[in-house]
């Protein structure tokens, strides 16, 4: 390629710069994560938090603040919660509010990894944490693919089908007896002064801290996983398993 052609290619790139699209995308991210009236307001002009427009911020400063937040203030670190693409976009947008014209389209490392899912797995992801099922959803006790609460140990092996999921043996669930009452429990720690366990009598599980002298523990429990997945039918469980297959690394 000749030098002239190369220059032409750069010029063309500039004319169809992705920067404008990026700023537009950034405005959409900004409107949901930053622009609320409690915080920076529409177009970063007003609201409870400091104004962001026309402050003379450069893009590196903006990228750093967006990613890391400002400790001990309401300004959070977005570096692990927004995707790389959304981070780039929102940083570019705030830079544009500060008159930065030579926008950098990739403002650094980090960002939440994007997991692409389709069909059954995507439906399974939504079901896994479906808020309509209240505490009956999987994510009350399980974390998978960055969704949910890690009460149970990470899922290592995904059951083959809904029947296998229902028949799942849960050897890690033990029995704690406290004040004459026996309950299914997941032991978290046993120390000289404290026994910490999840009480699985009902959902959501309750993290309880007791003195070792007050509790007896023994292996095994009549508790069965089948008793807590009644919020889903077999087809839904099957979709959830597809999701788990997509995100659980063996």
């Amino acid at each position: 390629m000749t030098r002239a052609l190369l220059l032409f290619a750069f010029a063309a790139l500039a004319a169809f710069s992705p920067a404008q699209d990026l700023v537009k995308q950034g405005e959409a991210v900004f409107s949901k994560s930053c622009a609320t009236g409690y915080c920076h307001g529409a177009k970063g002009t007003n609201g409870g938090a400091p104004r962001l427009a026309a402050r003379g911020f450069d893009q590196a400063f903006i990228a750093n603040t967006v990613q890391r937040g400002i400790p001990s203030t309401a300004m959070p670190a977005f570096g692990t919660t927004l995707s790389r693409a959304d981070l780039n976009a929102v940083v570019a947008y705030v830079a544009s509010l500060n008159g930065v014209t030579n926008l950098i389209t990739n403002s650094g490392p980090g960002g939440a990894p994007a997991v692409k899912l389709s069909g059954d797995a995507a439906r399974g992801r939504d079901l896994f944490s479906d808020a309509v099922r209240s505490f009956g959803r999987c994510s009350t006790c399980h974390e998978a693919g960055g969704i949910g609460i890690a009460v149970a140990t990470p899922i290592a092996k995904v059951p083959a089908d809904a029947a296998a999921l229902k028949a799942l043996s849960t050897s890690q669930v033990s029995t704690v007896t406290l004040g004459g009452e026996s309950m299914p429990a997941l032991l978290v720690s046993k120390k000289a002064n404290t026994v910490v366990f999840y009480d699985l009598t009902s959902v959501p599980p309750v993290l309880r801290t007791e003195s070792p002298s007050a509790v007896q523990t023994r292996d095994g429990s009549p508790w069965r996983h089948a008793s807590v997945i009644g919020a889903y039918n077999d087809a839904e469980l099957s979709a959830i398993l597809s999701y788990l297959r997509a995100v659980v690394k063996p």
Binding site: T81, T140, I147, G148, D199, P204, V206, L207, R208
Partner: peptide, 10 residues
């Protein structure tokens, strides 16, 4: 005791 009322990241 400590119980999760909901998942704040959701």
């Amino acid at each position: 005791w400590k119980v999760s009322v909901d998942d704040p990241k959701q």
